[in-house]
């Protein structure tokens, strides 16, 4: 069984996720029973989708490194596809977009090979230079800058940034930290996703002052600060279980992830507002598209990765 290979700390954390989901389902059930006149369909759909996402993620993390990397590569693929589907693109660039997709298996292959040097420069240097070359060979100059810039932005967020989460998986265990890379990835995912939920819940509970009225009118200062506080508490609590971080480190990482995740969320909101859309897709019932779910992770993953890299490796 693959479960034997998992560090007990990982199993505890995964158990914690499902315990939390159980609570969420119970609360949703009670709310539905108490307010039969209220339409709680979206909340129910959201919780149900969380169950599915948590289950898929748990299986993907448990079976083995190859499966985990393939899973994250697939998430990058879905996110890039969704991005390219909602933005304006040029007909002439079909073949260019094909190459944009090709970067995904390559980027994740560097991770499989634990080839840090190429992993870190492949998209920002080689893809950055190659994508415009492919466009130049087609020769369409009308809208060139907008086209090349949007492809780069898509690759940087959906492939480069997200792949940092996958690179955490291949980080070797340290002395006194046996759980290793998978635990770091789990720590990042738990904090980022719960930060989203906490900001939403705190915003509903005590949010008044709008923090980014033009970008996302639903976001409030109360929600942001409440979310960051919750994330920080959780960061300190989970650090000894899943990371080599001391409580001092965790006290810094918590707010860092809280604020950065907020801006990741906001950047996708800005894109949706720019395009006049409510969500980026309908892949995940109650949540929207896959970009709506991984937006904050695209910001927190590189930030957390480089913090850990700098501090321990």
């Amino acid at each position: 069984m693959p479960w034997d290979r998992l560090h007990p700390n990982l199993l505890w954390a995964m158990g914690g996720i499902f315990a939390l989901l159980l609570v969420a389902s119970l609360v949703t059930g009670i709310l539905t029973r108490r307010n039969p006149q209220k339409n709680l369909r979206e909340l129910q759909a959201r919780v149900k989708s969380w169950w599915i996402m948590a289950s898929v993620f748990t299986v993907a993390m448990s079976v083995g490194r190859g499966v985990s990397l393939a899973f994250f590569a697939f998430v990058s693929f879905l996110a890039l596809k969704e991005f390219l589907s909602v933005i304006p693109t040029r007909r002439a660039d079909r073949r260019v977009l094909f190459w944009a997709y090709v970067t995904i298996p390559l980027q994740y292959y560097w991770i499989w090979e634990v080839w840090y040097g190429l992993f870190i420069v492949f998209i920002p240097v080689y893809a950055f230079l190659f994508i415009p070359i492919r466009m130049l060979l087609i020769g369409e100059t009308k809208g060139f800058l907008a086209a090349v810039a949007t492809v780069h932005w898509g690759l940087m967020t959906t492939v480069f940034s997200l792949s940092h989460l996958a690179y955490l998986l291949v980080l070797p265990p340290l002395e006194g930290f046996g759980a290793g890379g998978p635990a770091l990835a789990l720590y990042l995912v738990i904090l980022t996703q719960l930060n989203d939920v906490a900001q939403y819940v705190w915003g509903k509970a005590l949010g008044k002052r709008k923090v980014a009225p033009t970008v996302s009118p639903g976001k409030t200062l109360g929600g942001l600060l409440g979310g960051v506080a919750t994330t920080t508490a959780l960061a300190v609590l989970l650090a000894p279980l899943l990371t080599p971080l001391t409580w001092k480190h965790a006290l810094l990482v918590g707010p860092l992830l809280g604020f950065v995740g907020f801006f990741g969320d906001l950047s996708i909101s800005a894109i949706k507002r720019d395009l006049g859309r409510k969500d980026t897709g309908e892949l995940i019932p109650g949540h929207g598209g896959i970009l709506d779910r991984v937006d904050s992770t695209s910001y927190t993953a590189p930030i957390f990765f480089h913090y850990v890299w700098w501090a321990f490796y």
Partner: peptide, 8 residues
């Protein structure tokens, strides 16, 4: 066209 480029 012979090359498939995925879009939703």
């Amino acid at each position: 066209e012979a090359v498939l480029v995925p879009f939703f």
